[in-house]
Structure formats: structure tokens, C-alpha cells
Design a protein around this nucleic acid. Structure first.
Lengths: 228, 228
DNA sequence: TTAATTTGTTAGTCATAGCTAACTTTTTTA
DNA sequence: TAAAAAAGTTAGCTATGACTAACAAATTAA
């Protein structure tokens, strides 16, 4: 067990790269993640990414061979999970106690996740009575760094007649989140797939006696679990 | 009214300098504040301060002439007050809801005060029902940026027989704050000055049936209002 | 009032982390 | 399999904000 006393020595940037790499590797379940892909995800140049990856390799948070794919070490993973824990706990706090809406929390949580204080985040967790899910439905890693991925499929993978429950939404885009709540969808909504249109893959869905047509792109960002 | 749409464009460093200058100018009530004094307060080199002051002058947050004393513009003051508001509200939150002690809050609040979100801080204020004082006793500026200084004198300015109430403590040093609570002093404690010793200016005080001798340096950091 | 001390300024260096442009390696596809 | 495209790398530049060393101005003291 390499418990090399992780002293919170990372810069904001280093943390951002580790978290992004984790999200591509684990949450998006990518088979391989490359330098340019990470660059695009973080909206920086490939040169910047290359540079940072070198540094993170030297610090033993990242593994990769020249011209090869990227991976995280145990230590790198652990840092990323702690960042995700912080992000999701703060999002939960903002929604539950400070009247933030779904689409408002992300930017502020991006800042708050870099605050360095073990006590702060563990006390926040306790204060909220150890919530299981964040406002977008995702699971919150616990204080021991145990991370698991919510079992979910995209709405777009369903067929005519399927019935599902909304368990999470992609929190990457503010306009998407606004759209979701505007049409009246929320976590736990029961959604029935009325028809998947051949022509453009758009989907007619029904929920709370509302019937809506949503695009394939929309449905790709809505995560559900099948009920029927 | 130069309301030039203050877009939170400042770096963490710029904010630190503005806040420090405000604290020297207004809170310590200094008649003049110089470059080296500011450098010492921030624990950076005079060269760094000189450099930053140039930038802040260009941005019209600071006024000074070459080799002259430093001052803040209205805009600079307003930014500093907002930082102090954020710092004190976070300190209050940490103590009241997250089980932080007096001496633990400062470092975390130093980080939290740089989070940029108007909504975050105003909602935090509302959540706590608009507290008037922070855990060290200081007044919290309101959402309109109205700032006032708590009427207070130092314990060291009192004479034999004076009785006072502890209204605030200097929050600059963790070891000092620990010391204060260890001997049993807290906000609102009633303190009686038994004797100011000529030899070394040490002071014998009594509070809650405890008698203690404190140094002049200690008493300089304890703020009181006179009762008798 | 001159000399010493303190205070303020400038020049030049370093690390972080971004960028573009040019290049190399790997992968794809014709 | 050879050419084209994509992916990855390197070199060299930028800005921020630290630093030291050297110097100039202002203040204090002899």
C-alpha cells in the first residue's frame, strides 16, 4: 500500500487534469484516452496537455508511454475521486440549502471543489446527513474514497413501448439542464417511450401526462433505468 | 457614480493585496501605509508589492504617487469590503454549522473568500439569517457593501480596576486564538483588570472566577468595550 | 546639514501554465 | 503498402506573480 501522505500539494490545474482524465477513463468508460482527447475535453491546446501530463507522470499520478494512451495510477484515481466527492457534495449543498437550481450549481461547484480542507468536506457531508446522490442524480463517493457508478442507460437506447425512470442527467451543459427542467422532467420522473422515429431518431416520450418530442442528442444526455 | 460593472475580473493575488491594504488603512486605522509595510503584512518581498501596486493603480483600484503612500479608490475599497464580507460569513458558517473552532476557521475562510458567486454569498447570508458578527466578534458587512468598524479598544489600554467585556479578538494568529480559548476566555466574557504591572506591562485579569496573568502582547490582541 | 538608515524602485530571474507553429509518430484509408 | 490524416511531441513565446540584487529617494539621527 503506497500511502505516501498525499499532502494536497496539487495546483488547481493539476487537479483539473486528473479529474478530467478520470471522467474520460471511468465515467465515460473509454477504452483508451489520448492526449488530444483530453485537451479537447478541457478546452486547452494539445501542447498544454502534453506538458501537464509530463508533470503528472513525474509525480506518479499518471502512466503513459510515449505516443501511447493515458492512464491514472491508484494515487491519481484517488485524488480524482476526492475531487468528484467535493464537487457533488457542494452541488448538493447549493441546491438543498442555498436555493440554487440544477443549472446554476456547476460553475460554483467547479470553484468550490478546489478548496483544500478535509474537515470542511467531511463536516459538510455530516451536516447534510450523508447524501447518496447529487442534484443530477449521480452517486457521491464517501469519505473513504469509495466510488461507484450509477447503473444507468441513456434514454436514446430505449425502444418503442419501454418505460423507464429518470435517474440522472449529464451536467456538462447549462442550456441542456435548463431545457430538461423547463419541459417538466426531474429526477425520478417516469418516462414512457411512445415512438422512436426512424427518419431522424427523434423520440416521442410521455411523462406526467405530458407528451414531448425530443431529439436524439437530448436523449443521449438523459440517463434512465428501465422499469418495463 | 462610477459604476463600471465590476466583473469579478480579479486574480486571487489582486484580491489579497486589496484586502490587505484595506485592513491596514481602515481596520488598523493607519495614518499612512507604505509599500514595505504592505509587503511585510502579506509576507512577500517589497519588489512583489511594488509590482502589484503598479497593476492595481493601472486598474484604478489604488492611488499613490511615486515614493508616496498608498490609498484605495472607492472601487478598491468596495472590492475589499466584499472580500471581508465573504470571509466573515464563511467563518460564521464554519463555526455555526460545521463544528469548526475559532482557531480553525481562518485558513479555510481565506480560500473560500475567493469563490466568485454573488448568489452564493447572499444565499449563505440568508441561510444563516443575516448574522451581525463573525466568530471573532467582528461586524459582517451587509449585501450593500456597508462596512462599519466595531467600537473597541485593546485590553492593554485599560488601567487597574477597569471592567470590560470581550467583544472581539484578533484573528491573525492560530496560536493566539487557541491560547484565548484554552484559558477560558470567549466573546462576551467580563474581564476585570486587577493590576497592570509596571515592570513588564503584564496584566493580572479576572474572569469567571479565574485569575490569570497575560502579557502586553496578548492584551494587544484582545478587544474590549469598557463596562466600568 | 551631512551621514546613516529606512523605504521605495528597477532590472533581471524563476516557475506555472497557457499559447502557436513546426515537427514526428502512429493510424487510417485509398 | 504507400500516401494522407490524425495524434502526439517539441521548441519557443506569453502573462502572472513570486524572488534577489542593486540602486535611488526620503527620512532620521548624529
Amino acid at each position: 500500500m503506497t500511502n505516501k501522505l498525499n499532502l494536497n500539494n496539487l495546483t488547481k490545474s493539476e487537479e483539473d487534469y486528473l479529474k478530467a482524465l478520470f471522467q474520460l477513463l471511468v465515467e465515460d468508460n473509454a477504452t483508451k484516452v489520448g492526449n488530444n482527447q483530453l485537451a479537447e475535453y478541457l478546452k486547452v491546446s494539445p501542447a498544454s496537455t502534453n506538458n501537464m501530463i509530463k508533470k503528472l507522470k513525474a509525480k506518479e499520478y499518471v502512466i503513459s508511454e510515449k505516443y501511447g494512451k493515458l492512464d491514472l495510477t491508484e494515487e491519481g484515481r484517488s485524488i480524482a475521486v476526492r475531487l468528484i466527492r467535493k464537487h457533488r457534495l457542494w452541488e448538493t449543498f447549493l441546491c438543498k440549502y442555498l436555493n440554487f437550481t440544477w443549472d446554476e450549481v456547476h460553475d460554483v461547484a467547479e470553484q468550490l471543489e478546489h478548496i483544500k480542507s478535509r474537515k470542511l468536506i467531511d463536516e459538510l457531508d455530516r451536516f447534510m446527513d450523508y447524501p447518496k446522490n447529487d442534484p443530477h442524480g449521480e452517486l457521491i463517493p464517501n469519505a473513504n474514497g469509495e466510488y461507484s457508478v450509477l447503473p444507468k442507460i441513456t434514454l436514446s437506447s430505449l425502444l418503442d413501448g419501454d418505460v423507464c425512470e429518470l435517474v440522472a442527467v449529464n451536467d456538462g451543459s447549462v442550456s441542456f439542464l435548463k431545457y430538461v427542467s423547463e419541459i417538466g422532467l426531474a429526477l425520478s420522473s417516469e418516462i414512457r417511450v411512445l415512438e422512436v422515429r426512424e427518419f431522424d431518431k427523434s423520440i416521442r416520450i410521455q411523462f406526467n401526462d405530458v407528451i414531448e418530442t425530443v431529439t436524439r442528442k437530448f436523449a443521449d444526455n438523459v440517463f434512465v433505468k428501465k422499469v418495463v
